[in-house]
Computed example of a mutant assay.
Amino acid sequence: MKLGLFSILTIPFILLKVFNVVTWSWLIVFSPLIIGVVIWLLLLVFLILIEAIADR
């Protein structure tokens, strides 16, 4: 299993939060994963739109 950039960033963020090194909210801690999901969803919507336009 390969870890992507967003997963690699999330792991130290979680460790920093758990060991009270940072006082960030959990939303900020998981923001790399959220950003990754948003990018994939935008890419999916973009590809679906291109396919719909190509089928005309």
Rank of each mutant, 00 (worst) to 15 (best):
E51F: 13
S25E: 08
F46W: 09
L44G: 12
L41W: 00
I11L: 12
F19C: 01
A54W: 04
F13V: 03
I28H: 05
L44M: 11
V21Q: 15
T23E: 14
E51A: 15
I39D: 06
L47F: 12
V38G: 07
K17V: 04
V22N: 03
D55P: 00
F46Q: 07
I8S: 06
F30G: 07
I48A: 07
E51N: 13
F6P: 01
L49T: 00
L41A: 03
S25A: 07
W26Y: 11
W24F: 03
S31T: 06
V21K: 15
L16I: 05
V37H: 05
L42T: 13
K2G: 12
G36A: 11
A54S: 09
D55R: 07
G36H: 08
S7V: 01
M1K: 05
I39Y: 08
L47H: 10
I48G: 01
V45M: 04
D55E: 07
I8K: 06
V22S: 02
I28E: 05
D55V: 05
S31W: 02
M1F: 09
K17L: 03
K2T: 14
I39R: 06
D55M: 05
I39F: 10
V22F: 01
F46C: 06
V18Q: 11
F30M: 13
L47K: 13
V37K: 08
L27D: 08
L3C: 14
F46S: 09
V21R: 14
S7W: 02
V38T: 11
L15K: 10
I8R: 06
L43Y: 02
V29R: 10
P32D: 13
G4I: 10
T23R: 12
I8H: 04
L27P: 00
L49V: 00
S25K: 05
V21T: 13
L33M: 04
F46M: 10
I50E: 14
F46D: 07
L44P: 08
